[in-house]
Amino acid sequence: MNDKILVIGRNGQLAKELAGLADSAIVGFLGREQVNLSDYNAMADVLSRFSPAAIINASAYTAVDLAEQESQQAYQLNHHSVENLARFAKTNKCHLVHVSTDYVFAGDKGSPYKVDDPHNPQGVYGASKAAGEKAILEHWAKSSCIVRTSWVYSRHGNNFVKTMLRLMKEKPELNVIDDQVGTPTSVTGLAACCLQAARDKVCGVHHYTDAGVASWYDFAVAIQDLALQSGLLNQAIPVNPIPTTAYPTPAKRPHYSVLDKSTLKGAFKGCS
């Protein structure tokens, strides 16, 4: 039985975490230098050499604010390239696991978003990810799994935890937004979830995050507390809550983007 899993992406948080799992079923990690996802024929030629039973797409355009200026690049990677992957997966009867985001929602619902709630993105990043989701479901809903997640952090790359730890060493105090609410997610659990989806051919749209609900301010306070306990920081600094209006950004963020994970228990074993 063919259990080969091919990962699209090499340098992102999820791809690096999957690489650290040293799972024998994962036969390759393809970054943008190895495969051009925008050219279907060239992409298909590269992917076919691996004869994968499943593909985990860990590649995405994730620069939320820059996407407002680089909409073409965001749509190319988050929509058109994803559509090419879905077409390849369908043609080759290959299971596709794709990671999406809470930013496909507006953030104004006031309660956790369910997997079948309608898209209503507030910026280019969220809109491009929503378009990628739709492309997968149009081409290969029969054997695909879309895993939406939020606020991912890890020891790899750039993320909120690493940024806070750096700034807490450099600054006398920090101002952090307290009216954007979601759920932080360790990439460790997300990687395990994606790997299981690939192995077990889990289908459908599902939400995976860690437990709990927090604002960015709450998250920053917890980061400092844990860093002090573990010796990553030597002294505490004041962390001040501020509203979104005090820290304007090019892209609008959802104010409440907690994801309902109720479908996980039935679709995944031990992944909740």
Rank of each mutant, 00 (worst) to 15 (best):
G107W: 15
H79P: 06
G123I: 15
D116P: 15
V99W: 13
V104M: 13
A89H: 07
D117E: 05
H119S: 11
V104I: 12
V82E: 08
K109D: 06
H79I: 12
K90W: 02
F105G: 03
H80S: 14
G123N: 09
S111T: 13
K93V: 08
G123F: 15
L96H: 00
Y75E: 06
K93M: 02
S81L: 10
V99S: 06
Q72R: 07
V124T: 00
V99Y: 06
V99R: 12
L96Y: 02
D102P: 14
H80T: 15
V82P: 05
Q122C: 14
G107V: 11
Y113D: 01
V115I: 10
Q122H: 10
H95E: 01
N84P: 01
D108H: 12
R87G: 06
H80M: 11
F105D: 13
V124N: 01
N92C: 04
T101P: 04
D117N: 03
H119Y: 09
P112Q: 09
Q73D: 05
P118T: 01
A106L: 12
V82I: 14
K93G: 05
G123A: 07
P112F: 04
H98R: 03
K93C: 05
Q72D: 15
F105E: 09
S81T: 09
K114A: 14
F88N: 06
V99Q: 10
K90L: 01
D108E: 12
Q73M: 11
F105R: 03
Q122G: 15
Y113R: 01
V115Y: 05
S100P: 00
D116H: 13
V97S: 00
D116N: 11
